[in-house]
C-alpha cells in the first residue's frame, strides 16, 4: 500500500513531463506514419511565428539571403539536415548567428549547370534545401521538384523567384541602427517581413533582424521608440 502511494506521488510530479514526452513521441510516430503529401509542420524560427509555417513538401520564395537563412534556421536548429545549393556568397558566420547548425549543413557553392540534379539529390536526404537557381526555372521543372519534395517530406527555399511557390516572402523597409556619419557600427536592423500565400492578403510582421543583443525576434515596442533610439544613436 505504501508503495502504491509513493508511486502515485512520483507519477503526479512527473505527469506533465511525461505527457510532454508522450506527445513528442506521438508526433514523431505521426510523422513516420504519414502518407506523403500531407505536409507535416516543420520547425520554424520563432520570429516568423504567425507569418509563415514551414511545411514538408512546401516551396518558399524569399528575396533576401538573410530571410532565407532565417527560414533555414528553424529545422536546422531542431536537428534536421539542410543543404545550400548555388549560393556562392553564403555568409557562413551570419547563418551560424541566426541559429543554423553548420555541422548539419551541406553546401554546394558552384553546381554549374547541374544545380537541378544536385538539388534533387539533396532533397532526398535533407529536410530543407536552400537554392539559388541559375537561369530560369520552368513550371515543369518546379513541378518535378515539388513532387519530389512531397514524397521525401522536405521543404525548398528558393532565393529569387520560384514558379508557383506556396509562400512568397519579402523583406522590406530595412532600417539599420548604430551607424552615424563616420562613427559607430552596424548593431541592429528593423525590418518588415511580408508573406504572401496565393491570393490571400499578405501577412506582415516587424522584426528585429538582428536585434541589438544579436537575437532575431519580433518588434514589441511601438514604432516611435525605434525612432527615438535612432535619434539617440545619431546624436
Amino acid at each position: 500500500m505504501f508503495d502504491t502511494h509513493w508511486v502515485g506521488v512520483v507519477a503526479g510530479i512527473d505527469r506533465h513531463q511525461r505527457l510532454a514526452q508522450i506527445e513528442q513521441l506521438r508526433s514523431k510516430v505521426r510523422r513516420l506514419e504519414q502518407k506523403p503529401g500531407m505536409g507535416a509542420e516543420l520547425a520554424t524560427h520563432a520570429a516568423l511565428g504567425g507569418v509563415v509555417q514551414l511545411r514538408a513538401g512546401g516551396t518558399y520564395a524569399a528575396d533576401s539571403l538573410s530571410l532565407a537563412m532565417l527560414l533555414m534556421a528553424g529545422p536546422s536548429a531542431a536537428g534536421e539536415w539542410s543543404a545550400v545549393v548555388g549560393v556562392e556568397d553564403f555568409g557562413v558566420e551570419a547563418a551560424a548567428e541566426l541559429g543554423v547548425d553548420l555541422e548539419r549543413t551541406i553546401v554546394v557553392p558552384r553546381p554549374k549547370d547541374s544545380w537541378l540534379e544536385a538539388t534533387a539529390a539533396l532533397v532526398d536526404v535533407t529536410t530543407l534545401v536552400l537554392v539559388r537557381p541559375t537561369g530560369r526555372v520552368t513550371p515543369a521543372v518546379a513541378e518535378k521538384i515539388g513532387a519530389r519534395l512531397r514524397t521525401r517530406g522536405a521543404a525548398l527555399v528558393a532565393l529569387g523567384d520560384w514558379p508557383r511557390a506556396d509562400v512568397r516572402l519579402r523583406a522590406t523597409e530595412p532600417s539599420w541602427v548604430g551607424l552615424g556619419a563616420g562613427d559607430g557600427h552596424l548593431r541592429a536592423r528593423r525590418m518588415v517581413v511580408e508573406a504572401v500565400r496565393g491570393t490571400a492578403p499578405p501577412r506582415r510582421t516587424a522584426l528585429w533582424f538582428p536585434g541589438p543583443d544579436g537575437a532575431t525576434r519580433k518588434v514589441m515596442e511601438p514604432v516611435a521608440d525605434i525612432a527615438d533610439l535612432r535619434k539617440q544613436e545619431s546624436a
Binding site: S64, L65, D89, A94, G214
Partner: peptide
C-alpha cells in the same frame, strides 16, 4: 563586430 554580413562575395 557582429552582426556578420549575410552575403559574403566570393
Amino acid at each position: 563586430p557582429p552582426p556578420a554580413p549575410a552575403r559574403v562575395l566570393a
